[in-house]
Every structure is written in C-alpha cells, then in structure tokens.
Design a protein around this nucleic acid. Sequence first.
RNA 1: GGCCCUAUCGUCUAAUGGUUAGGACAUCGCCCUUUCACGGCGGUAAUAUGGGUUCGAAUCCCGUUAGGGUCACCA
Length: 488
Amino acid sequence: MKEIRVRFAPSPTGYLHVGGLRTALYNYLFAKKNNGKFILRIEDTDRNRYVEGAVENLINSLKWCGLTYDEGPDVGGNYGPYMQSQRLDLYKKYAEELIKNGHAYYCFCSQERLQSIREEQEKQKVPQIKYDKHCLGLSKDEIQENLMNNVPYVIRLNVIPNQKIIFQDIIRGQVEFDSINIDDQILIKSDGYPTYHMANVVDDHLMEISHVIRGEEWLSSTPKHILLYDYFNWEKPEFAHLPLLLNPDRSKLSKRQGDVAVEDYRAKGYLQSALINFVALLGWNAGDDKEFYYMNELIEKFSLERVNKAGAVFDLQKLNWLNAEHLRKIDNIELLKMLKVYLETTQYSKLNYDDEKLLSIIEAMKERVSFIHEFVDNCKYFYEEPSEYDIKSIEKNWKEDSPSLLIKFKEQIEKLNNPQKEDFEIAFNKVVEELNIGKGKLIHPLRLALTGQSTGPGMFDILIILGKEEIISRIDKAIKTIQIIKGT
RNA sequence: GGCCCUAUCGUCUAAUGGUUAGGACAUCGCCCUUUCACGGCGGUAAUAUGGGUUCGAAUCCCGUUAGGGUCACCA
C-alpha cells in the first residue's frame, strides 16, 4: 500500500489561527493513525503579505500544541525545500511544460484591460465574470516579440469549457462542477511567483502527498486543481474538505468576535491538552459518549469518515469546562511548577512562599479553579490581607456579637504553639461549645474577616494556610475596619 | 448575482429506514456541604419547511427557506 503523506500548508500571516490548528490537528491525527508522515509546508508566495517572524511564530504555536512534523522548513526532509518561495524555478518549469502542451498560455494583458473586461461583463450581467482568452489568440511571433521586449506577463491555465469535473471528497462524497464556471486561472504571476493553485498542485505532487485535508473554503477551487492534475497527467491525491469553524452568530470565525490565534489562548492560560481536546471535537467524534481525550487517544480513535459536514461554532464555555477538567487531572507537583511560573509574572513574585504552602493552596483550590492563574486571582487572600470586605456578606453575616466571638476565637489561637490543622479545629470547637452557639455563627464572620469574602475553601484549610500570626492580625484589622463600614 | 457546500436541543454532537430522538456544555431545581466549588440526582430544550418513496423517514429523492464558502497577479 502507498505511504500516507499529508501536509499542513499555511501561509505565514503572523500567527496560527485556531481554524488552522484544527486543520493541522486532523492532518496530524490522520498521519499518526495510519503510520504516515505529517509535513509542514510554508505557502509564502505572496510577497505583498510578507510578515517578519511569522514562520517562527507559526512553528512555535504548532510545537506548543504538540503537533510535531516529520518534514518541514526547520527539520528538513527528502522533498525539500519546504518553503514555496525557495521553489520558484520548479513552478516556472512546470508552467512552461503546460504551455508546450497547450494547457496554459502567456497573457500580456494590462491591469487596465482586465479591469475594463470585468466592468463590461458586469454591465451585461453575465453569470460568471471570466477572462476573455484574448492572449490565447496571439501568434507565436507576437508572443516572442512581447517576451523579447520584456512586456510583463502572467501564465494562465487554458480551461476548456463545458466539461464536467467530478471528484470524490472523503467527507462530502461526490462533488460536481462544470468547467464553464472556471476562469482561466493565473498560474504564474508577473513577479514570477506562482499562485496558490499552481504551487499547491505542483508541491503536493512532488512531495507525494496522498491526502489533501484542508478547510472547506478550498472546495470550490478544487476543480482547478483537478484540471491541473489532469493536464499534467499526474495521479490525484484523495481530498477531504473540513467544515468551517464559526463565530457564535454562525459567520466564519473571525478576529472581530474574539480570539482566533492559538497564542491568544495560550496567553490566557488555556492548557494545550484542553485546546487540542476541544478543537478535535469541533467537527469530529468517535461515535460514543467520550469527550475527554488526550492526544494519544485521539490518534487511536480518529478517522476522516467520522468528520462532520456542517460548520461548528467555537463555544468558549465548553472550552473552559474542558480546561478545568484537564487541569484537575494534572498532579499537584506539576501544578506547583506551573503556579510558580505564573507567580513570577504577578505582584506576588517577591513573596517567596515555600513549596509546602503553595501545595496546600493548590490542594485547597484545585476543585474550584479552571485556570492556573485562578490559584492566585480567585484567592488573593492567601497572598495578601484583604483590602476590602464584601458588602453583601457584611450585611448578611456580620452581627452585633460577631466581634466578641472573633475575639474569643483569637484568644484561643493565641494560646497555640506551632499549631497544626487539628489544633485549629479543636480551638474552634472549644469556642463554639463554650458559648453554646451554632458553628455558622462563628464560621461566617471568621471567613469574612480572614478573606474579605463569603466563599472559598474549607475554613480549616484557610486557617492552616494563613497561620497563627496572620489570623490574629487579620481578625484585629477586620473588627476595626468593618465596625467603621457598619457605622457609616 | 453564478457556482458549490450545509441544515437534530441555545452550543458541540449521537442515532447510517423501526429509539419514549441519546450524551456533553450552558441553564433551572433538589441532594451533599453551616460558605463556595467538586460530586450525585432530576427538569426545560431539537429533527428548518413543503411534497414525495416506503408498512414505516431525522435518515432516501425533489422543491422552498435559511446560513456559509467561493468567484483576485490573496492564500
């Protein structure tokens, strides 16, 4: 059997789009599943859109996602170079071959003439605006003369009209087009660079790509590619056109309506395993109820036949849920490393908490967060004393006798020497029993005094993390501050 | 506008001619917990529409509607 070879072929626009990530991922999964090769090819044939550092950025995002490729610009391979801008001679050579066979021709028409053709056709309301094949009628001598005089030219595909072009798409089944609707596509631009269609077909052939897996936006240009394969007399690859990723309003996923770059999600603290899991499920499922996947499981289960036809809305809520799920599966030692990295970027970088303390924060918060940064943002009271107290909680939980209860509790704490979690528990119970009150009467104002809010981990987890001295000082401060707030 | 693709809960989807149309996210309620979260249980919620074919249609066919893609010397 022929070797499976697939490619991800982005143009370097500056970042990796999540739609591109999904395309890359499906290519990767398909290759790995079938013991094939996954190739990265950079389609940088538009000199006007050159962006400094775009390729490096793309490669970084791909690597962060764990999509390692077998061949590519920075890793090499037997089919290189993998940057189209370094393959210009090849495209030229094949275009000239097409000219010899009559399947392509030189076109010397100016932009102005093309413009006026278009306007004229628009006026006449022709169904499909097309080039009028004017230069196809040029004699050999005229062409020679133009070339000698360095008249700028492009090379166009000579499309024969009224032919049915039929191909099988793995996802969509049979798709039919009529060549009457296909323009004499430019193959080589006047700057000598190829257009997408030319470069793509030549490279896919030369690189022995077995399956072209790409976004649906390419479906309607596939007949052009089919024509090229036929005119070259080359064997065609299999095609699979993936459904699009959509905004919540069902338009094509765009920057205007949220983040589209992989690096944005990375910067916001999304885990790569969660992003991959989420994106994999946008348009594919294994046919069962499983939704939590790691990459190796995706590889095992993936098949193109189970990819959906309809576009999928990129739903942040589900991504957030998956992120939390993935986060909870990470062991605490690993979380500790991640938390320390994050802390370095915050105002608390000079706190120098020891690992034991950070580990207990992780332990206390793990079921309550969806992101690493929430080990800090959702419980700042572990890193600094509260600067304000939740007003609703004051109204609800701060009673006349709250200060005296807290003072009683504080007195018990002051007696403790190097207290452990159980000691706090004993001290707490002692106060409650002596005063013969419900636990809530003390727990609520205590939580408010120590954290400034009414929600969070168990009280004794908070106590042990804060420690004796901090508890005492926070109780003192809270009593003073809240009395003032209540007074006004 | 031409051509092409698509259409199941708000969202992601399952059901490839016979199911009380299933699951997940979100949402609502209850339980657990003297907080919150996690967890458990339950509820609301879908086959766009009109015709066929068939004993039987979400599923096959045709029309309509709606959405999307594409029609560049961009990819």
